[in-house]
Amino acid sequence: MKRTILSEFSDIPLDRGILSDRLIGKRRTKRLRRLGDNQQYNGGRVAYFLQQLINGLTLGSIYGLIAIGYTMVYGIIGMINFAHGDIFMIGAFISVITFLVLGALGITFVPLALVVVLLMAMIFTAIYGWSVERVAYRPLRGSFRLAPLISAIGVSIALQNAVQIAQGARVKPMEPVIAGGLTLFTDSNNFDVVISYLQIFIMVLTVVLMAGFTYVITRTSLGRQQRACEQDRTMAGLIGVNVDRTISTTFVMGAVLAAVAGLMVTLQYGVIDFYIGFLAGTKAFTAAVLGGIGSLPGAMLGGILIGLIEAFWSAYFTIEYKDVATFGILVLVLIFRPTGLLGKPEVEKV
């Protein structure tokens, strides 16, 4: 359905602002809103609300997956990895490339293709995540606090430009892979509440990944080492934890989740370009701050909340200002609750 709208645009070069908006924002909500306007959604309020809820949760899942990468890296080395959004963008590109390769090889069986794409995106993006840490952050460890931050911004710009040169600046369209959906119900105004199979796929995959991830962090030896490094890196080294390797693993885990988010965006919106990482990354960062940076459940919660806020703002107010709403939240959180919803304030030891 929304494909039709996208395909109208997909071969027209667009300027940056509109493009980012179109990619990350919910075209679909706008369309539904128009639909609602026509019907003046008198009796359709509940249905309309439910539809926005579904859209918001889908979007929120994607933000949540990216936000985990921010929050984990912040937790373990206390720096904002500004290149994380671009790692996500790389994940999206690798997904598209793998789909094309598979298509050329004649593999069209959707579940198989999805699994292969997912694995390839995870592997290659993980390599990117690992290399970025190794090249740009590890040599600066023990340097002053701002150094890796600036390095991260540099990496972000470098990755964007590298992809722009290698893949071109035009948007890359992607054929819809998972089509169709379930009509949950139709209300008296003929407003369908639809959940697409793709949205189900995104939400289920997110829940599975987050559950698996929580298990790794709370129950396994690797997770314990990560938490130990997070709480006292020096001491972790003194009980024999390989701190450098643990930090690398953290980057790899964040990158893997970002790769999945990249695949989801590719499937959901059907077009990507080299610039999508910036806005998505910044919003995921907002989600991490809203949930309490450093807190894993916080990142998940923050992601869902940002997704919902964006969907509902677009639906009930103006879609043009949805980014303003999101970043307004970031400002408010930073002013009134800098530790976020689930973050713990740093206790100064005397």
Partner: peptide, 8 residues
Amino acid sequence: VAQHNALM
């Protein structure tokens, strides 16, 4: 966590 070597 101090015994992570054996566990890993």
